[in-house]
Write a protein that binds this DNA or RNA. Sequence first.
DNA 1: AATAAATAAATAAATTAGATTTACATATTG
DNA 2: CAATATGTAAATCTAATTTATTTATTTATT
Lengths: 402, 402
Amino acid sequence: MVPGMDEPIIRTVSRGVNQSGVRDHNVRLLLTLLQRHGPMAGSDLARLANLSPQTVSIILREMESEGLLARGAPVKGKVGKPSIPMRLAEGGVLSLGCKIGRRSAVLLLADFRGTVRQELRLTYHYPMPEPIFAFLRDGIKTILSKCSPAERSRICGIGIGTPFELWKWSELVDAPAKDFASWRHVDYQAELARFTDLPVQVVNDATAGCQAEHIYGRGKEFRDYAYFFIGAFVGGGIVLNHSVYQGHLGNAGALGSLRSFGPQGESQQLIDTASIHLLEARLAENGHDPRDLWTQPQDWSGFSRLVDPWIGQTAQELAKASLSVCAVIDFEAILIDGAFPDAVKHELVERTRRYLINQDMRGLIAPQIEAGVVGFNARAIGAATSPLFERYFLNGNLRLQS
Amino acid sequence: MVPGMDEPIIRTVSRGVNQSGVRDHNVRLLLTLLQRHGPMAGSDLARLANLSPQTVSIILREMESEGLLARGAPVKGKVGKPSIPMRLAEGGVLSLGCKIGRRSAVLLLADFRGTVRQELRLTYHYPMPEPIFAFLRDGIKTILSKCSPAERSRICGIGIGTPFELWKWSELVDAPAKDFASWRHVDYQAELARFTDLPVQVVNDATAGCQAEHIYGRGKEFRDYAYFFIGAFVGGGIVLNHSVYQGHLGNAGALGSLRSFGPQGESQQLIDTASIHLLEARLAENGHDPRDLWTQPQDWSGFSRLVDPWIGQTAQELAKASLSVCAVIDFEAILIDGAFPDAVKHELVERTRRYLINQDMRGLIAPQIEAGVVGFNARAIGAATSPLFERYFLNGNLRLQS
DNA sequence: AATAAATAAATAAATTAGATTTACATATTG
DNA sequence: CAATATGTAAATCTAATTTATTTATTTATT
């Protein structure tokens, strides 16, 4: 049995549970544990999940026969019968992810375990619906044509990571406001349904990044944390109880909208004080081509004179923002990632830590500041995880109302 | 069967579910639905909970025989057999709640439905462990002595609402720092165990207020909201998915620690800019006795000249704070309550709404600003709800690790 | 080195809990 | 009296646990 056929268990407080709901939950639980902890024997899973070995055995054999799980080499060296570690099968499940960004859109095919198998990119001056949907239509076709029939049948859906209220961005991206307004009534589900039967999930782009970090990066280490993704515009996501929390309208973790203060004490938002578009502007003022930031994502050493003060400012803002979010939820950690070279990321994290200790922390528990590891493509990879959570993994927190 | 005997279902993501877990969940679900929606027939519960009428029938009869539920008068006037609405039995479950505050501690006995049956108060210049534990010991004895044996057996626990890291308060309450440090190693469970066998839950005081508003007040109306309780020091609580979220160390909703800015742009916290202690100070400066605020909780009209500007400042701070919290979670609403007269509360809510619309709301969804209805005693009443959630109600979000 | 004992894993068979389904008695309206 | 909805009894079904068995290995003993 594959989970996700019935409505999953306990998605709202007002849902009773019956036997098939129990099975669905336990199947998802075992998949989630294997995802989170890596390959494991049934006996270990039974202990972790607090289920009887028999129950685990039955579920594992079923999932194995469906090709979701694969068995590893028996582990010897301990007293007793050798254990057989089970793992998520490499190609057991595939999914598509798309990120719509300031400068480019990405479409990719990823597997169960976060490996990107194919990737396509569209760049533009600013995003508009028509070219993006054309890119998706052609891109999906291209990607599917390179898959075997078996692989195609294992693609479980497509996730779209997109900024919240994109139609309000026209002045930020200096696009004609009138054209840009067409984003307002875009219905991704309906548009995608014109050329694919795959289930479609829409998720905030930075929240998608958070999902990627959560399952493939350092997210597993923490129960509750906030995630910053520094792109052209900064955004965020939050995790509670080991689950990404999207919020009732999908706008939880809108960390770009955190209040900040300009040099004259005027009210600003984090998006105005800690985003890469500020660095782009500085580059342009200094006669560089700001597009170099995007075409040379692994090496910004050519602009270090400008990058360095930008890191300083951004770190200061992130330190203040980190404490603001910790007043709402007592996050264990703050993860920072973005569309920049690793060296920049680590410098940013280091400086944020230093600024943090000078802040007023009365009544708060200091969070750990850590660097994310997924990096550049986090938003598209994370978008691809949405269909996985929908069908295979446990997500303690509710989905969006849809 | 009474729920809560086994570990309740799905408290962490890594918990498997078996039949007894299912029953426990469904029992709690029905109790929670009756709590939230009021008396209801089994057939309605079955529809709401998505359970078969048979299952609901069995569970209801069992809970009725245990005295947790009572049947109402048959409802006629519709086609078909009249339905019998079931309700939480008035005295079905009782619990104790204690709030430890700046100026006073309160101990009360409440029932399943939020009605306070007995209430005791201790006032002090500043809180210290020894007198408070003596008050609890004697108070519990007094309260129990006024209960019938049947009532005593129905008391399911005691909840303690206390500020976070009380030992750091010495300068705020001008107490000798040395004495005050004794709070640091206080173990409520151990202290209470010396004179009572009741299970003890410890919860942040403002979060307790939030729990009270959540089940007895306006909390039911919203899926996600933040709650401010304006006491001597402002505090808060948050609700996600219709459940109070305490956070992994019990410090979620530490809204008093939200960053704010003083007149010279210096960094402050909300606790410094939106608390009743500011008003106390103004009263003292103007020759009034600040204790009048606490002894005349329903009438502050004597100090309106001083109260009015305090309301203005507080409203402004709350408006800014409201947007800060909505950048972390897309709360539907902000609920405001406090230890002040209703007239003050409503003026504060009204002005907060007005300030809100002048704020920078890019990227955010404007929350509703609403007044809480539980008022003054919210923290103690809410503390008393902790044992109820522990044993009888569903709480989608995790409890503290303990 | 050979062998027995201990141990842990995995699973088959029997049992059990608790849900659903089906059937029916009941009380009411129209 | 027909229609309808509630509420419950009996039978059925699902998926868990418990108990018992097989198997592969390490460890201790001879």
